[in-house]
Design a protein around this nucleic acid. Structure first.
Lengths: 123, 123
DNA sequence: GACATAATTCAATAGTTGTTGTACTATTGA
DNA sequence: TCAATAGTACAACAACTATTGAATTATGTC
């Protein structure tokens, strides 16, 4: 992942509306959702939704396919995992076990599994 | 994690400069880094760095402690894991195995471990 | 106390982002 | 072909963000 791709993703999700859209699409999974239904669900004007969907799509967080006159949008979930890998890749200069002392107590065992899974990537 | 906290985090990392700062702090781990050294490393005017560090700190991505006349900044790494959990929590309406078909081929086994670790959280 | 250093705050300004209404394109169905 | 529906593109404007330089606060040193 390149830096510009990462900032574009973060920028995409820095708006409450776009975060709502993305989370809605994550919830619907591979089924995705048609633009009009998203607009109805989130009570957004079509023109405004279109603006935000464009941002999400350009960042790669959503993909769109045409179905007749409808546009179906789906979340790109793997991209989120690439993103966090990009962020934690060089964690503690390659000694991620050092991160542990600075971690919060809550959910530490689950976090350890997560950290281990991440540690297996690109190292 | 509340929605506003999430958007604040994304907003924080939507700037290339703040992303550089955060990644630098992730790399230095628990040792963190003093403001002046960050400025030198990233070749930023002190006033501009201060602006960005404030944003990162307010979002909770960095923590600051005083050391004499120096300010030492450290990355809050666990917060990133909370963030991704927040995003993927309701993945496929509670059937995250459905995400698999839409995933990219690269690194799929590591991703499965990661997904499993995430699935163990708050469910 | 006087001075140097580390860092932040503030004001000004250039640039960017989000929202709305209007206009446009494409598909469906009578 | 004509009208209705789904969605996007564009222009205008308000609101926000980033950068810079000057001033300020706090700590350490002579």
């Amino acid at each position: 992942m390149k830096k510009q791709a990462a900032t574009e993703i973060f920028e995409s999700l820095s708006s409450g509306i776009r975060l709502d859209i993305y989370r809605l699409l994550v919830r619907t999974g591979p089924d995705g959702m048609v633009a009009g239904d998203i607009a109805a669900k989130l009570e957004l004007p079509a023109t405004n939704l279109s603006f935000h969907l464009k941002a999400l799509t350009q960042a790669g967080l959503a993909a769109v396919t045409q179905e007749g006159r409808y546009q179906r949008y789906r979340a790109n979930i793997p991209l989120m995992f690439e993103l966090i890998a990009y962020l934690t890749d060089e964690c503690c200069s390659g000694h991620p076990e050092k991160c542990a002392p600075s971690r919060k107590p809550a959910g530490s065992s689950e976090d350890a599994a997560l950290l281990a899974a991440l540690g297996r990537k690109r190292r």
